[in-house]
Design a protein around this nucleic acid. Structure first.
Length: 573
RNA sequence: CAGGGUGUAGCUCAGUCGGAAGAGUGCCGGCCUUGGAAGCCGGAGGCCGCUGGUUCGAGCCCAGCCACCCUGACCA
């Protein structure tokens, strides 16, 4: 690729609408341009990176025995009505109509379409297992897309769906995909971690997320150094602490006035008591229409995911203020567990607390000197709060969690029969009877993986691509394009790289050396080969790795062979 | 969607009191240069987001709309 012939509109300054590094650098390096919110053009270099991710994903999925197909992006409403998601999915589902007013959606995921395909074409247990995947543009009309390719509305995803006669086989494939994902992200050259995850709206009962570790990651994770357990903080199991010794304080809770102080922070400052002395009372409405109260310590965060699984419902939402008033008799901010007539679940950390502060269920009042065992003896305890670094690991019972931040680039799900049952995907079993198939689904955010790679690999000068994802392997810089002898040597070198099958970007522009070096750093191709008048005279090219500080000189006659070898060696690791 | 913010040259941004649209950078041409974003000269480039209103006069004031960004719920 000759730089002078490519559309690589680099920018000196950060674009004003970008927040995170990957977004800024992809725009500055001329890889992407925004078309509308959450919707981007992929320019030549950006597309090359995306293709690299796709290539690795495709090779590994094929190797794993999955079959590539391509389903439609525009899907008929009927299939979605069958699964129930036409109504459940909400506004995130982009709905469109054709000329006859028939309803369609732009697929955000393809369980319905693939299940429909399988129920029509697969009739015997002998045709199972089967794993079908595609790499395709998806559209999710997110409330707030942001961070460039990290959270676009239109994005490229690899989605795979497997079908099995029984749970055991589905579990086997789940593990197989888990291992495949591990290979994929290793080959991408990324530092990542698979973690146990909540299952969310897609449903199912077992799931792992694959996170690329980066400071700027949106997800908080914890991992146990003693065992290998790692999980999203929303899900990570927390070891029960020792119950504090019971000290009988004053005989009964005392009411204190806390006018206008609603939040834990405000009341804590007002009463001059630490937030850990508070019991946070949160009212939630469940999807089945109940209102319940959840208690966590004042300095802890409630995990809605954990609450949902404790309650055994589909979803919860913070109760409306009218609902809070109805059950507590007070405005939001003064709710407390004492005297509440609804179901109350409390986090383990509250077991046996004394001297606590709770809302009084009366405007502008709180109760102090609350003793859990004395005043709230019938609490239902569960693990309800989000985990934080330092919390004890519940799996091994030994370690204390380390904290990480991650970018979710992949997820594997055990789906069970959620879709196959709703849509009647059956096969004839060995015993001659119809049986519902078991399903798993496995996603990778291809465009997000490209962005995550930058979040993890960059410096002040720009992107530092892992070799496997780089838009090219070698960036050849002609230091002085007007020097005809030099340019002839560069052209020759370029042709030699091409002949050797090395992916190369040749900066043949008539620009000063400094400009070319700056752009080379920004674009981040791993091997920079620099040729100048002095080098030609000495018969050497200068080779510098993007992440190295020093360069080395390699004889012109050897440089193509040497680099081709290094690149091939590194890529085959 | 709710709350906040911003829309002026390709990009980053100034624009005072309502009175002749600017800078830096990029782009084009020329000279001079050529190993980390050189210098000089010349030039092109503007629906000041859109529509309406107020005014002798609007980039600036008012109203409506649109787009984008930030904080929240969602997620590959």
């Amino acid at each position: 690729m000759r730089y002078s012939r490519l559309l690589i509109p680099t920018l000196k300054e950060d674009p004003s609408d970008a927040e995170v590094v990957s977004h800024k650098l992809m725009v500055r390096a001329g890889m992407i341009r925004q078309v509308a919110r959450g919707i981007y053009d992929l320019l030549p270099l950006g597309l090359r990176v995306v293709r690299k991710v796709e290539h690795i994903v495709r090779e590994e999925m094929d190797r794993a025995g999955a079959q590539e197909i391509l389903m439609p992006a525009v899907c008929p409403a009927g299939l979605w009505q069958e699964s129930g998601r036409w109504d459940q999915y909400g506004k995130e589902l982009l709905r469109i109509k054709d000329r006859a007013d028939r309803e369609f959606c732009f697929g955000p995921t393809h369980e319905e379409v693939v299940t429909d395909l399988v129920r029509r074409e697969v009739r015997s247990y002998r045709d199972l297992p089967i794993n079908l995947y595609q790499i395709q543009s998806k559209f999710r009309d997110e409330i707030r897309p942001r961070f460039g390719l990290m959270r676009g509305r239109e994005f490229i995803m690899k989605d795979a769906y497997s079908f099995h006669t029984d749970y055991e086989d589905c579990r086997r494939e789940y593990q197989h995909m888990f291992d495949t994902y591990t290979r994929i992200f290793e080959r991408c050259g990324l530092t990542f971690r698979p973690v146990e995850a909540a299952t969310g709206a897609i449903g199912g009962s077992m799931s792992h997320e694959f996170h690329v570790l980066a400071e700027s990651g949106e997800d908080a994770l914890v991992s146990c150094p003693s065992c290998r357990y790692a999980a999203n903080v929303e899900k990570a199991e927390i070891r029960k602490g020792e119950s504090p010794a019971v000290e009988s304080a004053v005989g009964a809770p005392q009411k204190v006035e806390t006018p206008g102080r609603r939040t834990i922070e405000e009341v804590s400052a007002f009463l001059k008591l630490g937030q850990e002395s508070f019991i946070k009372t949160l009212l939630f409405s469940t999807d089945s229409g109940d209102t319940i109260a959840a208690l966590v310590r004042g300095d802890h965060e409630l995990s809605e995911d954990k609450l949902v699984s404790v309650l055994g419902c589909q979803s919860v939402a913070m109760a409306e203020s009218a609902e809070v008033l109805k059950h507590t008799g007070a405005a939001a901010g003064y709710a407390g567990p004492i005297g509440l007539k609804i179901r109350i679940v409390a986090d383990h950390a509250l077991d046996g607390v004394t001297g606590a502060v709770v809302g009084a269920n009366e405007d502008d009042c709180h109760l102090v000197e609350v003793d859990q065992r004395r005043d709230m003896s019938s609490l239902e305890f569960a693990d309800l709060r989000t985990a934080a670094p330092g919390d004890g690991c519940a799996r091994c019972g030994e370690g204390a969690y380390d904290g990480h931040r991650g970018i979710e680039v992949g997820q594997v799900f055990y789906l069970g029969t959620k879709y196959s049952e709703a849509m009647g995907a059956n096969v004839l079993g060995e015993n001659g009877k119809q049986q519902v198939v078991e399903m798993g689904c496995y996603g990778i955010g291809v465009t997000r993986t490209a962005a995550a790679a930058i979040e993890q690999h960059h410096d002040e000068g720009g992107i530092v691509w892992p070799l496997a994802l780089a838009p090219a392997h070698v960036h050849l810089v002609n230091v002085k394009s007007k020097d005809e002898a030099l340019s002839a040597s560069c052209d020759e070198l370029y042709d030699a790289f091409l002949a050797a099958g090395v992916e190369i970007l040749y900066d043949d522009r008539n620009e000063r050396a400094g400009v070319k070096f700056k752009d080379a750093d920004l674009i981040g191709i791993p091997y920079r080969v620099t040729l100048g008048p002095k080098g030609v005279e000495k018969g050497v090219a200068e080779v510098k790795r993007r992440n190295a500080t020093d360069a080395e000189e390699i004889p012109l006659g050897d440089v193509v062979r040497v680099l081709a070898e290094r690149i091939n060696t590194e890529l085959s690791l």
